[in-house]
Nucleic acid binder design. Structure first.
Length: 550
DNA sequence: TTCATAGGCGCG
DNA sequence: AAAGCGCGCCTATGAA
């Protein structure tokens, strides 16, 4: 059973039961308290809720303690369907989808109402227009018809919608975060918290010593790459850039000071006290996730930088007393995905257990500075990213000879991209078409810029098929894990980063959570790849602090 | 003063 | 000179 949901004014709304294919299975009903009505029907029968956008509607339910098992997010589904049709970037609102169905003028999407107090959806003074239930019902039915015709899309849209539920729940529950530990870490590395916009003591000290190293009259701002370049040129050491790996190659007393400065300055500006004040409240870090924010299907964030937390700050992620963090990481996910995708028998056999790179190592010649395992890893990464300079050239040749189907799979994706064609993940998530600029550039000449653009597009599509299918797998894992955790009661998903999840759970449930994660990884592999011999092992640790994992 | 871009680096 | 994929966030910088 499905139920379509339209929000109305003042917390009211309208509901209508639907069959799986979207045809109405009963009359529309207007309810004065939409959240209460959803809660009652959720208890009665766990329907799949059909609503315009989980991100706008679900936070208000969570505020009132209401969670739902399943939904169909119309905007996310519309985005996936448009993408599959090569129509990236067209408006995805229910109104826009309805207008497309009727050949009417398609309204542009409203900019996400940023900032301001969170859920304005149920505010009585909400200026946003109420949803139109009839449009919701009609758009949903059209989507179901399209989805049924596309292999993988039923699973893809269900998983994307479940991901939206998880994202809202994680934003609501938050990642357990110790402000005390974070502050102590900052103080230890940077010195006491400075007042005003001053540099912390340790950074100022390094800045002074960097200037001393460049000479008595030096005025270098270490935050300015341009000034650093000039300073090195002035002492006879011209460098192409100030990136850490470039600076490491030159011999000058300022280099180690600069490297230390950059690292600490980054921590201070991106995840320092200002970040702590903004993003951590009541022992929880509540980021804003954007489901499907990356074209490959990975999530993005729109604030808080949840997907770029420096490893050193994992010390601040601490379970509540009596609780534990179950930290789970998919080992070597992308090469395993390639193995399963390509159906390369020899490669899949290597990916059938343990350490994939080690299993491949015997195919690569011994000798030299690199171990055979490292060579296997470089070859794989080059194949998936489109690298292949220096030593990687020979290693790629080995890969091509020994594992021709795996090599051929990403090569075919690269060639499709170079021809301007679309490529898709296993479940059908589709890459954006090349831009008009790209077409103009690559159709006219065969100069350097044109061939560079061609190769760039090839690298993108080459990587897309792997990264996006890995995202498919991770999203299905997340969806099935969420279902299992609901069965366990109190455990909560609190973090998801591409191929890694953290569950916050009472200590006594750590074993059951661990089992649930293993089972979900297996289920995801089966749902995507059927009977592939490739395994998708999870490295799991139940720890009091995130930093203790691995 | 505001805005867009580049350079750099954090994560996978 | 650029160079292997995908992101977000910060500062410096120069144009508007």
């Amino acid at each position: 059973m499905r139920i379509a949901v339209a929000t109305g004014p003042g917390g009211a709304g309208t509901l209508r039961p639907l069959a799986e294919d979207g045809t109405p299975a009963g009359p529309a009903e207007t309810v004065p308290d939409l959240v209460a009505a959803i809660e009652a029907r959720e208890r009665a029968g766990r329907p799949r809720w059909v609503w315009p956008a989980t991100a706008r509607l679900y936070p208000a339910l969570l505020e009132r303690g209401v969670r739902v098992a399943r939904c169909h997010d119309l905007e996310l589904a519309e985005t996936l369907l448009l993408g599959h049709a090569g129509r990236y970037g067209e408006p995805r609102s229910v109104r826009a989808a309805w207008a497309r169905l009727h050949g009417a003028q398609v309204p542009a999407d409203q900019a996400p109402a940023h900032e301001g107090p969170q859920p304005s959806l149920f505010d009585t003074d909400d200026p946003a227009p109420a949803d139109d239930l009839d449009q919701i019902v009609e758009v949903h039915a059209a989507q179901q018809w399209s989805i049924a015709a596309l292999p993988g899309f039923a699973l893809l849209t269900a998983a994307e919608s479940a991901g939206a539920l998880v994202a809202a729940e994680m934003g609501h529950d938050g990642l357990p975060w110790s402000a005390e530990k974070h502050d102590a870490l900052l103080t230890g590395l940077l010195g006491p918290r400075p007042s005003g916009g001053l540099r912390p003591r340790r950074l100022q000290d390094l800045a002074d010593r960097i200037n001393d190293a460049f000479g008595p009259h030096s005025h270098v701002n270490p935050d300015s790459p341009a000034q650093i370049l000039k300073a090195f040129a002035a002492v006879g050491l011209p460098v192409a850039s100030t990136r850490a790996h470039v600076l490491k190659k030159i011999d000058h007393p300022a280099v180690p000071l600069l490297l230390e400065y950059k690292e600490l300055a980054r921590l201070h500006t991106a995840h320092g006290w200002a970040w702590l004040d903004t993003w951590v409240k009541d022992g929880r870090f509540r980021p804003e996730y954007v489901v499907g924010g990356v074209v490959s299907g990975r999530w993005a964030t729109s604030g808080g930088g949840a997907l770029q937390i420096p490893r050193v700050l994992r010390q601040a992620v601490v379970a509540d007393p009596g609780w534990t963090l179950v930290v789970a990481d998919a080992a070597q996910l992308e090469p395993r995905v390639l193995a399963a995708l390509a159906g390369d028998r020899a490669f899949a056999d290597a990916a059938a257990h343990g350490d994939l790179y080690a299993a491949l190592a015997s195919a690569f010649p011994a000798g030299g500075a690199l171990s055979a395992r490292d060579k296997a890893k470089i070859a794989l990464l080059s194949a998936m990213y489109g690298g292949g300079t220096g030593e990687a050239v020979q290693l790629l040749a080995v890969l091509k000879n020994r594992f021709p189907d795996a090599f051929g799979y990403v090569e075919a994706a690269a060639r499709a991209g170079e021809r301007g064609r679309l490529v898709r993940s296993l479940l059908g998530r589709t890459c954006p078409p090349p831009s008009a600029d790209w077409r103009a550039l690559t159709s006219t000449g065969d100069d350097d810029r044109a061939s560079s653009a061609l190769r760039s597009r090839g690298r993108f599509t080459r990587n897309f098929v792997v990264q996006a299918t890995a995202a498919d797998w991770a999203l299905v894992l997340l969806a099935t894990l969420r279902r299992r955790l609901t069965g366990l009661g109190s455990p909560r998903l609190v973090f998801f980063q591409h191929d890694e999840v953290i569950v916050h759970a009472p200590q006594e449930l750590a074993g059951q959570v661990t089992a649930a994660i293993h089972a979900s990884a297996q289920e995801a592999a089966r749902l995507l790849f059927g009977g592939t011999p490739v395994v998708f092992p999870m490295e799991i640790a139940a720890v009091p602090c995130y930093a203790d994992a691995k």
